[in-house]
């Protein structure tokens, strides 16, 4: 079971969180004309990569904040966690 550092609550077990997928996906702006392909990429297409991955986790049974977690999908190593609005260098 992963041990995730919530930027608000500290170290917490994985079972307090739910997974939210790739954090680099950006929702197209409202009212903006976009191609079918762009929309498809937003709704359906994900990389499912092996290795370092910036992903979303929701601290469901905690502070209820969506956070960003930089994790290795193969080894489960967590390098860093960020608040939703934190600028990641």
């Amino acid at each position: 079971m992963l041990y995730i550092k919530c930027p608000y609550c500290g170290m917490r077990s994985q079972n307090e969180f739910s997974y939210g997928g790739d954090a680099s996906v950006k929702r197209p702006e409202l009212n903006k004309e976009i191609s079918d392909e762009e929309w498809d990429n937003f709704v359906y297409n994900r990389k499912s990569l092996r290795g370092k991955h910036l992903e979303l986790w929701h601290h469901l049974a905690g502070c209820r904040q969506w956070i960003k977690v930089e994790r290795d999908t193969a080894t489960h190593e967590i390098f860093n966690t960020y608040k939703a609005d934190e600028v990641i260098s």
Partner: peptide
């Protein structure tokens, strides 16, 4: 609730 929180925190902060 999770859905609303998602949009408020991540998409339209």
């Amino acid at each position: 609730l999770s859905h609303l929180e998602y949009y408020l925190q991540l998409v339209w902060p």
